[in-house]
Amino acid sequence: MSTDSASDFEFFILLAKLKSMSGAARALDLTPPAATKRLGIIERRLGARLVNRTTRSVSLTPEGETYLRYATQIVGQVREMEEAISGAGRDPQGLLRINATLGFGRTTIAPLVSDFAKRFPNVEVQFEVTDRPVDLIEGAFDMAIRFGELPDSRLSARRIMSNRRFLCASPKYLERFGTPERVDDLQQHRCIIHRQNDDAYGVWRYIVNDHIEAIKVKGALSSNDGDIVLRWALDGHGILIRSEWDLAKYVQSGRLKLVLPNTVLPSADLFVYYPRQRNQTARARAFIDFLVDRFQAPFTPVDTAIDVRERKKRVSRK
């Protein structure tokens, strides 16, 4: 592959990303006529139109989509090859693009990015937080940090932390409204609903003999923010499903109690996801290893046996 071809690939990738000839020209320190001429040379060499141009933007033709797909793969492979050869024996460097959930990314991952940057000052980190999962490949992210199952078959994943989920409520709520004895009892209780992505509203799932069962619950309070619903549970407004990561300290302090502790809910393990077809760079491997190290024993696990023993004591007293 010639140097000119490699440069053309990078030019076209940038043009496709910005969707603007003038934007690509500014980014490459070219004049707009020079950028237009460069695109024309590429199209004449290939004998095909790659973009549809208007006065304000450009869009890719089917031939342009094919060119972009191959150009992205080739440029990525060249960069991986160069890093593998020149990066041996030295600290990671280069650009690392990371995505994480909004609240968890802001409160937990962002401080870890700060620590990572101090340890590896030659790595440039672009960290974005979003309320919904992103397309890593289309968004050119190296990885995403998310709770839950693999969202895309084109991705690979590494588990960072095991994270069970539990039903819980404040002692104040349980004293006033009683403690459910069976899952079906939840339908008679005030439940706090955490709305997430496209999940069915008020449908809680649990596992029985390796099968997923569901129950429809209701309540006066719901939110798409995990911190908000947790605060409402602490204030005694109802029963909530939260992960061990969020609950552990409140259960240990007695501010929250487990409800139906033997009921098994789908877990919310923490994963780092990354594109399957792309070899990981040294900087990506370094950050993932850094995360795994930092998330070793992040909390004292919730002891479900405590609630079972307390329930048996209450029954015996009756």
Rank of each mutant, 00 (worst) to 15 (best):
S162G: 06
G47P: 10
R278Q: 12
N224L: 06
G103R: 06
A268C: 05
D131L: 04
L60W: 11
F11H: 06
T108G: 00
Y250T: 02
I288H: 12
I13N: 04
N52D: 10
Q77S: 12
R195I: 13
G148F: 11
S59M: 06
R311F: 11
T54G: 06
T263Q: 09
Q73D: 13
V183Q: 01
K172R: 11
V272A: 15
V308W: 01
A27L: 01
R165G: 01
E10Y: 02
F12G: 06
T130R: 14
R309C: 05
S222M: 07
V113I: 14
V183F: 04
F120T: 01
Q280M: 15
L155G: 05
P275V: 09
T304L: 06
N197C: 03
R38T: 04
C168A: 15
G226V: 03
L60M: 12
R255S: 12
Y70L: 11
L230F: 14
N209V: 00
Q73C: 05
I306N: 07
R242G: 04
S222F: 15
H211K: 14
G139I: 00
F295S: 09
R283G: 03
M21L: 15
D29K: 15
V264P: 02
T263W: 07
R132A: 13
K218T: 15
V272F: 03
G226S: 12
I239Q: 04
